[in-house]
Simulated assay, not measured.
Amino acid sequence: MNRTPRPTDLRRRRFLTRAALAGGTLLLAGCDRLTRSDAMRQVFDTGSALTQGVQRLLASRQALAREYSPADIAPTFRANGTTNPDDATYRRLAADGFRDWRLTIDGLVETPLSLSLAELKAMPSRTQITRHDCVEGWSCIGQWTGVVLGDLLARAGVRDEARFVVFHCADRYRGGDPYYESLDMLEAYHPQTLLAYDLNGADLPIANGAPLRLRAERQLGYKMAKYVMRVELVESFASLGRGRGGYWEDRGYQWWAGI
């Protein structure tokens, strides 16, 4: 059972959140230049690992991100990143209301899955009102409904050697490499980690990631992949992108984005 956080714990968590956001902003402002240096990559990676370790020391494995009331929901949920993928297959699926779209779950699993949007919506769901914190400095509160990722992983049967869950997406940010993101198993099994298909009581809009997007509420916004097409269980990132666990991580962002 989770204990009630003490005031000292809350002060420490607020300090860590501010420090993480400040560090992230500094990193993003100069990542194109700084991350060309292997030495600077080591500095950022060490800082990321330290932040992750301290946060998990102070917080319960199942500690929940704050949830809000319906009165706090923003009138319009701001979209981040790609807002209308130009992939031909995606556009064909969107034109038909995603009736032929399917989510693939494979990799290091006992039972690979292929699920339609209707099948996902027929599964037990969770609804939560949470705040999206973007590394660019803005926040927005919205209500999300979707399938708890841990339930899908249990259904697929994760093999012991799997260490990460990778989300492959339909978009290519500004026409570049395919977008992807990843979580470790602790965040993947967190009760607030959803594959969401509904925003504010309606089907997820294309600008916000339709038909399915990741919500990992203890992470910054760039971790919350949109337009998810495939979930892959892997042991390492070696064969993915540039080997750092995500589209933006391959370009200098920290892999650990906990807040």
Score class of each variant (00 low, 15 high):
M1D: 03
T4E: 07
P5Y: 00
T8W: 14
R13W: 10
R14S: 12
L16Y: 07
R18I: 13
R18F: 14
A19Y: 12
A22I: 13
T25D: 05
L27D: 06
L28C: 09
C31G: 09
C31S: 13
R33F: 14
T35D: 07
D38H: 11
A39D: 08
A39P: 01
V43Q: 12
A49K: 08
Q55C: 13
R56G: 11
R56Y: 06
L57E: 09
L58Y: 06
Q62L: 14
Q62T: 15
E67W: 08
Y68R: 01
A71H: 14
T76W: 10
A79Q: 02
Y90H: 04
Y90G: 04
R92S: 11
A94Y: 04
A95Q: 15
R102W: 02
R102E: 03
R102Q: 14
I105N: 01
D106I: 08
L108S: 05
V109Q: 03
L115C: 01
L115H: 01
L115M: 03
E119T: 13
K121Q: 15
A122Q: 04
M123I: 05
M123K: 13
P124V: 01
P124K: 02
P124L: 00
R126W: 00
I129Q: 02
T130F: 04
T130H: 04
H132Q: 14
H132E: 06
V135F: 06
G137E: 02
G137V: 10
C140P: 12
I141L: 03
G142D: 04
L152Q: 02
R159F: 08
E161M: 05
F164M: 07
F167I: 09
H168D: 14
C169L: 01
R172Q: 10
D177H: 13
Y179S: 02
E181P: 00
L183N: 05
M185R: 10
L186V: 15
L186T: 14
Y189H: 15
H190S: 04
T193S: 04
T193D: 05
L199Q: 03
N200F: 10
A202E: 07
A202H: 15
I206N: 03
P211I: 02
R213I: 08
A216W: 00
E217W: 10
R218G: 07
G221H: 09
G221V: 05
V228H: 01
R230S: 09
V231T: 07
L240P: 08
L240Y: 11
G241K: 09
R242M: 15
R244D: 00
Y247F: 15
R251N: 11
G252K: 04
W255S: 01
W255I: 11
W256N: 10
G258H: 05
G258N: 08
I259Y: 07
I259R: 11
